[in-house]
């Protein structure tokens, strides 16, 4: 589904590249965990997969088509959805409106479907009252669940998440991981999670370790 060919990325100069000549493949129906030490470049790699930035070398292909050909905006709108570590919810809206806005922008089949949006939020344990108040009035954990619900409700085939359970307790973490597994296996999506939590990585189908600019499969894909 997603193929990375000779990928290279650096901030200042190619001599100080964060990673170079990376070749990887990610498939649908799978959950992937990317682990690595802080500053290794996990989030940068994720931003490239999310279409928020462009590689300095090589290319990323979705079903054989380069992202530059698809167009990064179109790719973000229709093919990928991102869960950020810092939630990144629209601050002047309620959880429901955040979901409805995402559904409208991504031109989802559920565009304007309030009941669907509510169902997604209920699935993540938000009460009716919490759904209609401003997201800034919610706790960090609740906001993270709204962010996850927003990414899950869209029709994108690729879900990338940056420390999605960083602000959740153990019970909620398990529930979220189970939910990611569900959307990967039942909705035939590809879920890529950047995490430093061992239990999250363990719960994923495949684990990839990034160290010194090199990617290494901890659990080899089948």
């Amino acid at each position: 589904m997603l193929e990375i060919k000779s990928l290279g990325y650096w901030y200042q100069s190619p001599d100080e590249s964060l990673f170079n000549d990376v070749n990887l493949k990610f498939e649908a129906d799978q959950t992937y965990a990317i682990i690595g030490s802080s500053g290794a470049g996990k989030t940068t790699f994720l931003s490239l997969l999310a279409g928020l930035d462009q590689p300095k070398a090589g290319e990323i292909l979705l079903d054989g088509q380069a992202l530059t050909q698809i167009g990064l905006t179109a790719y973000r709108r229709h093919q990928v959805t991102t869960v950020f570590q810092s939630y990144n919810l629209l601050p002047y809206m309620s959880p429901i409106n955040n979901l409805l806005t995402a559904l409208a922008i991504t031109e989802s089949q559920h565009k304007g479907d309030v009941a669907y949006a509510k169902q997604q939020l209920q699935q993540l344990g938000l009460t009716d009252d919490q759904m209609t108040q401003n997201v800034q009035h919610l706790s960090g954990g609740q906001q993270q669940r709204v962010a996850i619900a927003r990414s899950m409700c869209c029709d994108a085939r690729l879900v990338v998440a940056d420390e999605p359970t960083g602000n959740l307790d153990e019970t909620n973490t398990e529930a979220i991981i189970a939910l990611f597994q569900k959307i990967a296996h039942e909705q035939h999506k590809c879920v890529i999670i950047v995490t430093h939590e061992a239990n999250v990585a363990a719960a994923c189908d495949q684990t990839l370790k990034l160290s010194n600019g090199e990617f290494e499969w901890v659990t080899q894909p089948a």
């Binding site: 999310a50 928020l52 905006t73 179109a74 790719y75 973000r76 709108r77 229709h78 991102t82 950020f84 990144n88 919810l89 629209l90 601050p91 002047y92 806005t101 995402a102 922008i105 991504t106």
Partner: peptide, 13 residues
């Protein structure tokens, strides 16, 4: 930040 979120969601500029 808000503009960044909208762009990340795929909103046209």
């Amino acid at each position: 930040h808000e503009i960044g979120i909208l762009l990340a969601l795929g909103e046209a500029r």
